[in-house]
Nucleic acid binder design. Structure first.
Lengths: 336, 336
DNA sequence: AAATATTGCGCAAGCGCTTACTCTATTTTA
DNA sequence: TAAAATAGAGTAAGCGCTTGCGCAATATTT
C-alpha cells in the first residue's frame, strides 16, 4: 500500500507537506502542491483513515443502534441518520439488537472500542444497564424515543399524547365510548410509554365516561390478529380499537374482517406509526403519524452539535404526533 | 484514555505481555495473566481497535452498499448480513446510494479508506464504473443480484427465470394469453434483469401464442398505480399483469380496484419479492418469492470465506425463486 | 544596512497497538 | 556437570498518519 512516505519521496517534499496539502491545513506553494497532488493521482493514493483517526482522535464514524431493521419503524429513521451523516463526512455502523439487551450492550461496547465519535441509540430495548454503560464510558450519545424524560442526556421524543388525544377525541366525536387498546410487549420501553400515554389520555377524558381495556400484543401483525380474535370471542365487544403500532392494527383488522366484522362499520381501528402499509390496506388505516425520517435526521443533528461542542447544554427535541384520518374509523353504529 | 502502557506499568509487565494476554496469543503464567486482567478490569480498560487495526491490517469491519433502506427489498437482506457479521466479530458500515451512482462510488471510496475488510454491494445502481473501482482498488467484495453473470467475482444471484416461468405457467393454466409486464425503471440493473427474464420466459412459451407488452413503472406503488390506470384506458386490456416488484403490483391492484376492475376476477396480478405487505393486501398477492434474508446471510458467508482466503476460486451462488400462490390470480373470465 | 518579521517547509515525536527477535533463568539431556 | 533445550517475558521497530516546534531564506521595517 502506498503511503505518505512514498508520496513525499517521489514529490521531493516531507511527509508533513503531504499531510498539509491533503488536509489543506497550512499554506503550501502552488507548484509544490501540484507536484504532490500529481504524485498522489499517479499512485492512486488513498489516505488511510485508520491512521488518521489514531493520530487525531476523531474517526468521523458514528454508531446507530436499533432493535430490528425489519420493523417498519426503522428504515426511515436510518435513512434520516445516514443521509445527514454522509453529508457531513461520517459513516455509520448499523447495529441491530434484535430486541436483546445483551446484544445491545455488546454492540455499544464494540462501537466504543472502534472509537466512534458518537452513538445514536434508537433501540426500544434500552434499560438502565445500557444507560449506565453509556454514561460510564463517557461516550457521546443521543437517545431516541426513550421513556424516562428526566434523564440528563441529549434526547428526542415523540409526543404520543397529542396524537393519541386526537385519536380519542376523534373516536369520541364519532360516539365511541368503549375503546380497547392493543399494546406492544410490555417489557419494551417504547411499548410501555405508549400504554402510559393512552392511559393518561383516557384519564383526562373521564368526564366522557369511557370504558377501556388494555390487551397485550407483540407489535407484529400476528399479535394484533391473535388479540383481536380473542376480543371477538369476549362477551363485551369494543366499538373501537386503538393499537400501539400499525402492524398490530393491521393484524387486528384482518382478524375482524376474517371474523365477519366490518371495519369501520362495526368496529373502528386506529393504528400508530403511519407506515407505508397503512395507505394500502383496505380500508386504509386511520393512524397516528410519527415523523421517523425527521427524528432520525434530527438525532444526527443533535449528535453533530454535541460532537462539535461537548459542553453544550443538554439538548432535547419533541416531535408532535398527529392523527391521520383515513377509512378505518367511522360513526359508531351498533350498541354494544 | 488508558492504554497498554498504563496497564503494563501498573501490572509490572511489558506492553507485549498485555497484548498477549488480551489476544491469548502466547503463553503467559496464570499469576501474571491474572494480574494483568485485574488491572484491566480496575481501569475499565477498552482496547483501541483502531490502533489494533492499524497494526494488524485487519479491521473486522465490512461495508454494505444498498440502494435505499426504505425499499422493502433491503431490510431483510441487511438483517442477514448484519447478524452473521456480528456473530463473527465484524461490524458493518451501512451505505445508502439513494439510487445514485455517484453516491455509490463515493461510499465505496470512503469504505476503502476506512480499510474495511470487504464490501457487499447489493445496490441496484451498480454499473461498470463501480465494478471498475472495485477491481482497481483491489478490495475484497461480493456482488448481490448484479446482472452480468460472466463477471469474475464472487457473486450471488436470484434466479428470476424459474419463478417467472412458474408464474407464467400458472397464468397459462388459468387460460390467460394476454399478459402485461410492468417493469421497474429501465436504468436499474435489477429492473433490467427482471425484464430480460420475463422476455426469455415469454419467448420459451411462444407455442402458447402469448400476447404481451412491457410498460415501465418505477418500482414504487405510485408507478404501478399510474401504469395500471393507463392500461385501463387502452383499448386492449390484458387479463393478467405481472409486475417487476410487489410495490408495483400493489399500486396496480389499487388502480384497478379504484377503476372498478375486480382482482382477480377481471384481471389477475402477480408480484415479485414477496414482501410482508403481500399477505396483508386484499386480495392477498400472488407473488414470486425472493429469499432476501438468506441471500444476505450467504453474501456474508462468501465474504468471510474470501477474507479468510483471498486465493479461493470465484464463488457463485444462485437462489431459486418460486411462485407463492395467493388470491390475486384466478381463472380467466372475460374475453378481451 | 542592520534588525526584525514573514514565508514555506522539514524534523521528529507520538497516537495505541502488534510481533519478530532477544534475553535470562530454569530444566533437560548426555 | 557442562551443554543444550525450553519456558516465560521484554525490547523496540513499525503500522500510516498529525502537528508542535524550529529553521533557513526572503521580505519588510527603521
Amino acid at each position: 500500500m502506498v503511503n505518505y512516505n512514498d508520496i513525499a519521496r517521489i514529490a521531493k517534499v516531507s511527509p508533513t507537506t503531504v499531510s498539509h496539502v491533503i488536509n489543506e491545513t497550512r499554506f503550501v506553494m502552488p507548484e509544490t502542491k501540484k507536484r504532490v497532488l500529481d504524485v498522489m493521482k499517479k499512485l492512486k493514493y488513498q489516505p488511510n483513515l485508520l491512521a488518521r483517526s489514531l493520530a487525531t482522535g476523531k474517526t468521523h464514524t458514528i454508531g446507530l443502534v436499533i432493535s430490528d431493521i425489519r420493523n417498519p419503524f426503522y428504515p426511515e429513521l436510518v435513512q434520516g441518520v445516514e443521509e445527514l451523516a454522509v453529508k457531513n463526512g461520517y459513516n455509520v455502523f448499523l447495529c441491530n439488537t434484535d430486541y436483546d439487551i445483551g446484544k445491545g450492550l455488546k454492540s455499544i461496547g464494540a462501537l466504543i472500542k472502534r472509537k466512534i465519535d458518537g452513538i445514536i441509540v434508537a433501540s426500544s430495548q434500552v434499560d438502565s444497564s445500557v444507560i449506565k454503560q453509556l454514561f460510564d464510558t463517557n461516550v457521546i450519545f443521543v437517545l431516541v424515543d426513550w421513556c424516562k424524560r428526566n434523564i440528563k442526556a441529549d434526547s428526542l421524543y415523540f409526543d404520543y399524547k397529542v396524537g393519541i388525544a386526537e385519536a380519542i377525541s376523534h373516536l369520541i366525536s364519532f360516539g365511541h365510548r368503549n375503546i380497547y387498546f392493543i399494546s406492544g410487549p410490555k417489557e419494551l420501553k417504547t411499548a410501555e410509554i405508549r400504554i402510559r400515554n393512552f392511559m393518561d389520555v383516557i384519564e383526562s377524558n373521564k368526564s366522557n365516561d369511557l370504558n377501556y381495556k388494555i390487551l397485550e400484543g407483540d407489535h407484529k401483525i400476528d399479535g394484533g390478529f391473535r388479540v383481536a380474535q380473542k376480543i371477538l370471542k369476549g362477551k363485551i365487544c369494543p366499538t373501537a380499537i386503538v393499537c400501539s403500532n400499525d402492524l398490530t392494527a393491521i393484524g387486528a383488522m384482518k382478524a375482524l374482517q376474517t371474523g365477519g366484522v366490518k371495519v369501520p362499520e362495526d368496529i373502528s381501528i386506529i393504528g400508530l406509526d403511519n407506515i407505508a402499509l397503512t395507505e394500502i390496506v383496505s380500508p386504509a388505516l386511520t393512524t397516528i403519524e410519527l415523523e421517523r425520517y425527521r427524528i432520525g435526521k434530527t438525532a444526527m443533528e443533535l449528535l453533530l452539535n454535541r460532537i462539535k461542542n461537548k459542553e453544550l447544554p443538554k439538548q432535547t427535541c419533541t416531535f408532535k404526533t398527529k392523527l391521520i384520518i383515513r377509512e378505518s374509523t367511522s360513526e359508531r353504529k351498533n350498541n354494544n
